[in-house]
Amino acid sequence: MLLEALLIALWAGIVGIDLFNGLTHIHRPVVTGLVVGIILGDVTTGLIVGGTLELIWMGMVPLAGAQPPNVVIGGVIGTAFGIIIGQDPNVAVGIAIPFAVAVQGLITLFFTIFSPVMHKADQFALEGNYKGIERINYLGLAILFVFYAVIAFLPIFFGAEQASAYVETVPQWILDGLSIAGGIMPAIGFAMLLKIMMKVEYIMFFIVGFVLAAYLNLPILSIALIGLAIALYDFYQNKKGNNNSGPREEEITDGI
């Protein structure tokens, strides 16, 4: 079992990276099913469980950056147990879901802990140290690889029952709380943008954008187009003012 568990861990590490980087989608359960099936010597069951998980988890995609239950660990552990225990795919899903949800929480935590590293990156940027920037990105990849490999290895090597019991000792409110925090987190990013971009003269456009989304529920593209329309109007007004009546500002002050 050790060799199989290690190979599955290797696969989990690779597709764990693919989930965010590369995005060739070899991390989807339909592909993982085939690969885990090959590793465990039962391709047909692997394909069937993987295909079933794929259909069930079709909607588990990171829409607007929100983290869904983790499809990598769900797919790897689901298909592995589907084959090892010989259960039907729906039971495999039942085993996989607590893992998928727990890993979702851990990923939220990882995205939080990795934030301080950005200050090192700022320093590298200031120094023009491109190698430093590259190292930070490779570090992120390495952590993801090890993280997924370990998470996949443990339950497969030690057995599903122990692992499930252990996962269930994590109180639900912690997982919920991390996921709520993950939903609020973009506010910090937007606040940082505001800090850089906001000037008193621009507040009105910020308000327009907010109202269009909050009250009229317009999609972002339409809001961007409205913003573009305003910006074009502003641009041509300015240009006109600049070319034709150069001393426009003076005129106004003179009038007063």
Partner: peptide, 29 residues
């Protein structure tokens, strides 16, 4: 090319309009 300062002003207008919309759309609270 002419009027670069107006381009950056126009870009900031679109940018801030979008940020206003993003806050209402993507912050889940």
């Amino acid at each position: 090319k002419e009027g670069t300062q107006f381009v950056s002003r126009a870009a900031s207008i679109v940018g801030l309009t979008v940020v206003g919309g993003l806050i209402a759309t993507y912050v889940a609270f």
